[in-house]
């Protein structure tokens, strides 16, 4: 365990600085995947997924999606709709939280929770 720990330390940076040594207590199965949370991967992910999305949209030029509705067959319909829907759902979280969010022990009984 300890040897593995020191060797891995070099190529992974702690995501949260306040934490104990980054790979301390890491499950052996998880070791090969620690690169997934490296800063590079984290930053690159946005571009990676963006490119993947664009690729999936360009596929529309190559194949003919047959839908039940004509609007469904527009180029990149699902991508645009998906992006808009997702963004809407997430952004609506702000006003919704302001409206319905309360202190954690709002209901008297929940103080006994956990």
């Amino acid at each position: 365990m300890t040897t593995a720990k020191t060797s891995k330390k070099a190529n992974t940076k702690p995501a949260a600085p306040r934490k104990p040594a980054h790979d301390e207590g890491v499950h052996p199965v998880a070791r090969p995947f620690l690169w997934l949370v490296s800063d590079k991967v984290r930053k690159g992910f946005l571009y990676f997924i963006g490119i993947a999305m664009i690729l999936s949209m360009t596929a529309d030029f190559l194949i003919n999606r047959h839908g039940h509705f004509h609007f469904e067959e527009r180029i990149g319909f699902f991508a645009f709709f998906g992006f808009a829907a997702f963004a809407f759902v997430v952004l609506m979280g702000w006003p919704l939280r302001r409206a319905t969010g309360r202190d954690e022990d709002y209901y008297p009984e929940s103080t006994e929770d956990d």
Binding site: M53, S56, G76, F78, A79, F81, G82, A85
Partner: peptide, 8 residues
């Protein structure tokens, strides 16, 4: 398309 755009 839907999933990738949403993840994006």
């Amino acid at each position: 398309q839907l999933l990738l755009a949403a993840i994006f």
